[in-house]
Amino acid sequence: MSKIEKVLFTGKTHTTFSDATRAHGNLDIELSSPGNAKPAHVFAATQAHPTAEQLFAGAWSACYISAIEHIAKAKKVVLPADVSVDIEVDLGQTGQAYFLQARFFVRLPGVAHDVATALAHAAHELCPYSKATLGNIDVAVNVLTA
């Protein structure tokens, strides 16, 4: 993997379960899971004209937060109501080549840090977007429990 020398643009998303508040002037997207018409994920306060990096981060975060939920249920871990995942996807350049890199901020308030960290890493093993990017782009994961 090549390291990005110059970041050209960063697409950011904030993903929660469907009880998030809405922000005026921004794009809010509600996604449902297969077989479930009720919105399962909400992207609140996305810029009105999202970029490819924002859309990629949004789709990835919806998949990833679902993976966290799935793994938590399997391990009988009760998730707090205010679980959130923020993903920042950078489009960058090294020489004449273009690359992506990502930063995850996984918020699991009140969950023991070791349990939250295990959930965050296990979600990457389950999420198809994480599998697709594994070894292809740099991904940093930050787990916040406070």
Rank of each mutant, 00 (worst) to 15 (best):
R22H: 11
I87E: 01
N26D: 10
H70D: 06
V85H: 07
A97H: 07
E88N: 14
D114W: 04
A40T: 00
Q54A: 14
K76E: 15
K6W: 03
T117M: 01
G11R: 06
A140I: 12
Q96K: 06
E88H: 15
K38R: 09
D28C: 11
A62C: 09
A97M: 00
H70P: 01
G110A: 10
F56T: 09
N36G: 01
Y98R: 05
Y129C: 06
A118F: 04
S33N: 09
L31R: 03
N136Y: 07
F99R: 02
S32N: 15
K6P: 09
A97T: 03
P109W: 01
A97C: 00
A132P: 04
T15M: 13
P50Q: 14
L119A: 05
G25K: 11
S61R: 02
A20V: 04
G58V: 09
A67Y: 03
P128Q: 12
K73P: 02
K73Q: 15
H14A: 07
S32I: 02
V42K: 00
H41W: 05
F105I: 14
P128Y: 10
F43H: 09
L31H: 05
A45I: 03
H24L: 12
A57D: 05
F105L: 13
L27F: 08
V106H: 10
S130K: 11
E69K: 05
G11W: 03
H70G: 01
T10K: 08
A72I: 00
K73T: 08
Y129F: 14
K6A: 11
P34V: 13
L55C: 12
L144F: 15
V139K: 10
S66W: 06
V7W: 08
D19K: 13
R22W: 08
Q96V: 08
A37I: 09
G58Q: 01
M1D: 12
I87D: 02
D19F: 11
A118P: 02
A44Q: 03
A97E: 01
K38E: 11
G110L: 13
C63N: 05
V78H: 12
A57N: 04
L8R: 07
I68T: 06
Q93F: 05
R22I: 15
S32L: 10
T94I: 07
D138M: 05
G92F: 07
I68Q: 08
V141D: 03
A112P: 03
Q54C: 13
P39R: 04
P109R: 10
D138E: 15
T10G: 03
T10P: 06
T94Y: 00
K76P: 03
N142H: 14
F56M: 14
D138F: 13
A122K: 07
A102Y: 02
V85A: 07
G11Y: 04
S84D: 15
L100P: 00
Y64I: 06
T16S: 10
A112N: 15
A40R: 00
D90H: 13
E88T: 11
D114A: 11
N136R: 13
I65F: 03
A62Q: 02
S2H: 07
A20S: 11
D82Y: 08
A45W: 00
H113R: 09
V139G: 11
V77T: 13
L126P: 09
I71R: 06
G35T: 12
V115Q: 14
L100R: 00
G58I: 12
A45Q: 02
Q96E: 09
M1H: 13
L27C: 04
A44T: 04
A20K: 02
W60L: 10
S32D: 10
